[in-house]
Design a protein around this nucleic acid. Structure first.
Lengths: 149, 149
DNA sequence: CTCAATCCCGAGTAAATTGCTAGGTTTTGT
DNA sequence: ACAAAACCTAGCAATTTACTCGGGATTGAG
């Protein structure tokens, strides 16, 4: 029951972009270096995020990536779901799945998986990139670190 | 972010044992058949559950497995954690891990993984096998099914 | 107008994990 | 004695993960 690196790297990279929101396009190379992620691998993740409409890109020299919306309008849930697929503990409780399990009506274990799914979604759909920035400032003020990871 | 079959099969098998609590040892073969799980595979899972002290076994003819405690004293969380390991979304927020990440103090993403971890644990550590039995009776009364899955 | 910086794209791949199967040994009630 | 059961160890095919690699297309700056 672990998140893969896709979800973890994705959130880090998007947080990095949020910290640089409004400063024009940020080259992938810089993000990868700051967040310590393999550059060509991160490239693939950014491609998914772009196709999902969460980031915009500018090609060519002085190009890079930027958030497609302001940090308070992008949730961690959007990022994770884009990169990992729907965040359900089992196949049978993936929301908006067309083919439902034939035993769904009387399956007791299903009720548990639904509760787990809902509790996860309640957390990640509420946290925005702006919340992360606020957390960062709080931590930073307290102990004086300057990294954003 | 899926549960593996270990966790899913484990919960099903333990629910099966809970439905048969007090009826003496239940042979693995019967559980496997009712819950539609490969018998030798389930055997491995039961071995883990036995070593964790969640079930007791009787060898020989008329032998089988039974819960080591009453259904209201066994949680879904105990079962899943035994079979899947600690239920944390990332390595860095596994509880009672000795080697902590060096960036833990100022890591903003870590705060998110902790919230996800806690929300999952709050759900599964509260649900007992007795709760599942109660759910079963509720569903069963409503629509007349007799399976327990 | 060139060129370096950048994003874009598809393929390949080693290592780990998952979900089993296979083939035995030991114990015990009837 | 014997059959039904738990117990144990090993192996293995398929899938997934976390990348790497090699090139092509754009574009701003000099």
């Amino acid at each position: 029951m672990k998140l893969s690196t896709k979800g973890r790297y994705g959130v880090k990279a998007m947080f990095d972009l949020a910290m640089n929101y409004g400063k024009g396009p940020i080259p992938l190379k810089n993000i990868a270096k700051r967040q310590q992620i393999s550059e060509p691998y991160l490239e693939q993740l950014m491609a998914s995020l772009r196709r999902a409409g969460l980031v915009k890109s500018m090609r060519g020299a002085q190009g890079g990536y930027m958030l497609a919306n302001s940090p308070e309008n992008i949730t961690v849930g959007q990022i994770i779901k884009t990169l990992e697929g729907p965040l359900a503990p089992t196949e049978c409780v993936i929301e908006d799945e067309t083919t439902e399990c034939s035993k769904a009506e009387y399956c007791v274990t299903r009720l548990i998986w639904e509760k787990i799914r809902d509790s996860i979604n309640n957390v990640i759909d509420i946290i925005t990139l702006q919340d992360m920035i606020n957390d960062y400032h709080k931590i930073n003020k307290k102990n004086g670190y300057m990294y954003y990871i």
